[in-house]
Design a binder for these strands. Sequence first.
DNA 1: ATTTTAGTTGACCGAATGGTCAGGTTGTGG
DNA 2: CCACAACCTGACCATTCGGTCAACTAAAAT
Lengths: 212, 212
Amino acid sequence: MTAYQLDGMIKQPTRIQQKNTAAILEAALQVFSQHGFRGATLDQIADAAGLSKPNLLYYFPSKEAVHKTLLDGLLKTWLDPLRAMNPAGEPLAEIKSYVRRKLKLSRDFPRESRLFANEILQGAPRILDAISGDLKQLVDEKAAVIEAWIAQGRLARVPARHLLFSIWALTQHYADFDVQVRTILDKDHDPFAEAGDFLDVLFDRLLRAAPI
Amino acid sequence: MTAYQLDGMIKQPTRIQQKNTAAILEAALQVFSQHGFRGATLDQIADAAGLSKPNLLYYFPSKEAVHKTLLDGLLKTWLDPLRAMNPAGEPLAEIKSYVRRKLKLSRDFPRESRLFANEILQGAPRILDAISGDLKQLVDEKAAVIEAWIAQGRLARVPARHLLFSIWALTQHYADFDVQVRTILDKDHDPFAEAGDFLDVLFDRLLRAAPI
DNA sequence: ATTTTAGTTGACCGAATGGTCAGGTTGTGG
DNA sequence: CCACAACCTGACCATTCGGTCAACTAAAAT
């Protein structure tokens, strides 16, 4: 028998199954985020997870399945901060809060960020549906909120979607280009702490509606 | 015989050699930028270049050599716009000009941008020397220029290195995440034209020294 | 025209790849 | 304690990988 079931995998019966699938996904995250889908090997993942390759394939039917599971789980986490943006809140505070949350994701889950970046770099072959579906829909919704704020004069005039791009670019950069950032900054700097302050200033100056 | 020489490859004798190495590098750029180093295969590159695999290996000694040649050539192009930043110029104009040049690179050489991104994502194993050497030195130099401008009150107070990070992140995002950007923007938008305007506003508001 | 050099390739090699399978071991409910 | 399911693995398979080589052809140089 195999440990996976194709239909929505409703139950996770045994404790050992939970432990091993978790170990596999953890190892796969490490390897996929560093080498991309094609550059990663099952042996590498199995090894990092402390399992034999056939044992790994007992829990997942294929390399693709491991990758897909990882991406699916990631997407929710990735979009949650944007979902949390409250139309009824104070515009500038809501945006800055989103930036902070997103930067914290970069700091605490850099491998997830790199996994996502890797997938997009390759043309998002395994995730394009989600992008043109859920993500696009959410962005449309939140862009409308931002545009309403602008129309009310509570936020400086900027193209809403490009504002979101800028938030993604600026926060994810610190995870995706971590090596470069740390090489250029000297040892005694904390990239994420400094980035937090900098981005706060940046979005404050960009978005604070001109008085009058 | 082989077509490559290890010592600085001074001469490129024949016309056919120029044509084929160019075709190989063009094909390799395509493949490496999409799949990363490990995900790319020599067969794929040879095929895209219209050559047989042994024929490709007649011009380059190994997969690694092709990749290295590509990266070395890229780094100069990548840093030139920063080098062009003139300490004697008007600060805000210099920065904005740098942003424009960098955005144009993203528009005209997106594959080069993705190749670079791929390499950094993987921890820059094949390019770390250049980053901690030439790049760091150039950044130190230009950061000093920016800090001087700030000290003179000709630019708003921002951390110079993070300012550079923000320029890289915001411009390269449009190349590296092209698929996502185009999916979210509707068909009739020109991402790079809009980005040009947006980034001009962004850096203007961020950097314009507060009057007084 | 002939020799030398540059360019090209099919066939091949050992290693690594994703994945299978038969059979073994371990855990668990009755 | 037994039976049954869950779990695990060595051996194996077909394919692909980076790279080599001897032999062939095309182009220059003499």
